[in-house]
Design a protein around this nucleic acid. Structure first.
Length: 600
RNA sequence: GCCUGUGUAGCAUAGCUGGUAGUGCGGCGGAUUUGUAAUCCGCAGGCCGAGGGUUCGAGUCCCUCCGCAGGCUCCA
């Protein structure tokens, strides 16, 4: 049905814009799109097209399937080079093809389709954008129109409402409303400024994972934000990934000397690429630094696994058009760790990493994720390392994913250039997928840095590295988390856990007494003793989504109690302060996903 | 990076075919002292993203750049 509606869209467009050439128009989740080779159109044009589609739908044109010979097909589409390309590709593969016809319009298609256009009355065009023909940046730019269609009016309306609801939990909007982070044009694109409230969320998450790491025998390390170019030449990141790095920093004296010699920018760049001069790179990842910690001492098999963990901030030059909120940024902090292990330890250690991801996702109630095992693309040569190493590493990842006990898919070509990986992927409110946690096996870097350990046989062996980041990056993770909770964080994560609201200024003193007792108990609290009405104060404070509001009036003051108001509006009056403190401390300690002190 | 949109005070917005900026929230001051989703009055906030151009005159039209949004491409 969605695909049929794409046909209807193409019919409408070709009737309205005679020069437009339809290319492809598949169904996608919740809708469809169709790409046209035509002059760019705007949002207003969508309405016109939409009207035309309704008109065509109302005509109740029967949709029929027709078969033609190859020559006839080529003749039918002779004015549309895109369709010809498709037909020729199909002929090469030996596939037959059919066309579907409605009215005097027809399209190359395998079907199936709805019997008549009357089934397509309830559609809506959503947006117009562009795409490259066959997804190739070097080929023609096409106009892509997105739309959706439902069997009846009611379902269409519901779907559109759902989309509106989803937009309300967009982390970019909530991040602003809840004052969690800020992006300043003056600082730069894709560079996140963590404001005090957002920093609390991040710090709580970091503390949480640090605790788990201690339990699993990790060692905490710290490394600087830059490193010599040579370090990254050895790792293989420079100059081959230059496109996605900030340009290198060159020492002042050297710069001056080169300038005096009349060196041009391109000469400088060449000198750096060839290794004739050195400089420093903002680190695009933490692994090279960690290899040097490993190499700082002779290692024995008894030292392994050596697990080095760091919340390491890295910088990558993402394309300007790809930067988005907190989920795609240019500077971010990975909850990174590198495990140096023997080959026999790979399976167990990969499993340990994956369990860590599961603990985190479980604690936060995130169950809507998928697992992807990224394998190499056998046809590509962008990978480094031996085939045997890759085979072993891929098998280790596969086995770890299997023992995970959740469905996973293997995808060719999704591996890192240095090794296969297991990724945890979640969706944001708009349906886009983001890679969060990742575990990657790497035979390559130990080789490049010539890392060794002495085995029980007294001979030097090569360790294997495992890269892993259960959150992925703090920025992306918190961004996704904001949407996951729609800003209503669990008590342990929420920036302000209790907001104190007084009914009149008579309770100001009582409020500050309660406030200081809560603070002493380690509760993050905010107090409002302004002279606004109680209704107004509740309205205002609700917006910041504290786990609880404590309402204080004459009654509470004389009894030494608090009245607790939950986010839902549910309330419990006259609770002794000590009881509330005990309850909220327990909730924080347990990391309860949904605040539940007040029963509904 | 490419395409299409878009950019008005901290936030949300009005401003038609060009005549030199309104409103709400928030903030500040005052009145009020309130029992669960907006008490009243007053005040201060804008080089209308930046720069250039057309014009007697530009928030409005044109160009360049920057940011943002949706896609595309990319994501070691």
């Amino acid at each position: 049905m969605r695909h049929s509606c794409a046909h209807l869209l193409a019919q409408a467009v070709t009737e309205l814009y005679p020069g437009a050439k339809p290319t492809i128009g598949p169904a996608i989740e919740n809708g469809f799109y169709y790409d046209f080779a035509m002059e760019p159109i705007g949002d207003e044009d969508l309405k016109t097209i939409e009207k035309k589609m309704q008109q065509l739908a109302r005509q109740n044109l029967p949709v029929s399937r027709e078969e033609y010979s190859d020559e006839e097909l080529l003749d039918l589409f002779k004015t549309n080079e895109y369709k010809l390309e498709i037909i020729n590709d199909k002929l090469e593969d030996g596939d037959a093809s059919t066309i579907y016809r409605q009215g005097d319009w027809y399209d190359l298609c395998l079907g199936p389709h709805v019997p008549s256009t009357a089934k397509l009355m309830h559609s809506r065009l959503l947006s117009v954008s562009t795409a490259y023909w066959r997804g190739d940046q070097d080929r023609e730019s096409l106009v892509r129109i997105y739309g959706t269609v439902f069997p009846d009016k009611h379902m269409l309306k519901e779907h559109l409402q759902r989309m509106d609801e989803a937009k309300k939990r967009d982390h970019r909007k909530l991040g602003k409303d809840l004052q969690l982070f800020h992006i300043s044009e003056k600082v730069g694109q894709g560079l996140i400024l963590w404001t005090p409230r957002g920093s609390i969320v991040r710090q709580e998450l970091q503390d949480f994972i640090a605790q788990e790491l201690k339990r699993q025998g990790y060692s905490q390390v710290f490394t600087p934000h830059i490193g010599k170019l040579d370090l990254f030449r050895t790792s293989g990141h420079f100059p081959y990934y230059q496109e996605s790095q900030y340009p290198p920093l060159v020492e002042r004296d050297l710069m001056k000397k080169l300038a005096d010699e009349g060196c041009t920018c391109s000469e400088l760049s060449n000198l750096m690429n060839e290794g004739d001069i050195d400089g420093y790179l903002l680190k695009p990842m933490n692994c090279p630094h960690h290899t040097q910690i490993y190499a700082s001492q002779p290692r024995s098999y008894r030292d392994l696994p050596l697990r080095l963990a760091e919340f390491g901030t890295v910088y990558r030059w993402e394309q300007s058009g790809e930067i988005s909120g907190m989920t795609r940024v240019r500077g971010f902090t990975q909850d990174d760790a590198h495990l140096f292990v023997t080959e026999e330890q790979i399976a167990e250690e990969v499993l340990g990493c994956i369990e860590l991801v599961q603990i985190i996702f479980g604690t936060l109630g995130m169950d809507d994720y998928r697992v992807r095992v990224g394998m190499r693309d056998l046809d590509s040569n962008k990978y480094v390392g031996s085939d045997e190493g890759w085979d072993l590493a891929e098998e280790a990842c596969r086995q770890a994913a299997i023992s995970l006990g959740v469905p996973f898919i293997e995808e060719e070509g999704e591996a890192a250039f240095y090794g296969p990986k297991v990724d945890f992927i979640v969706r944001d409110v708009i349906g886009r997928e983001w890679q969060l946690g990742t575990v990657q096996v790497d035979y390559n870097l130990p080789e490049r840095f010539d890392l060794t350990y002495q085995g029980s046989d007294g001979v030097a062996h090569r360790p294997v590295m495992i890269h892993r980041a259960p959150f992925g990056s703090m920025e992306r993770f918190v961004g996704v988390l904001i949407e996951h909770f729609a800003g209503k964080f669990p008590t342990w994560l929420t920036p302000t856990q209790a907001h104190i609201i007084t009914i009149s200024e008579k309770q100001t003193e009582y409020a500050s007494k309660i406030e200081s007792e809560l603070k002493t108990a380690g509760i993050r609290v905010e107090s409002d003793a302004s002279d606004n009405t109680i209704g107004k104060k509740i309205r205002t404070h609700r917006k910041m989504q504290p786990a609880y509001m404590l309402i204080l009036g004459e009654e509470e003051e004389s009894n030494g109690t608090v009245s607790i108001r939950a986010r839902s509006g549910a309330q419990q009056n006259g609770v002794p302060l000590a009881d509330f403190i005990a309850a909220i401390q327990n909730e924080i300690e347990q990391k309860t996903v949904a605040p539940s002190i007040v029963s509904e």
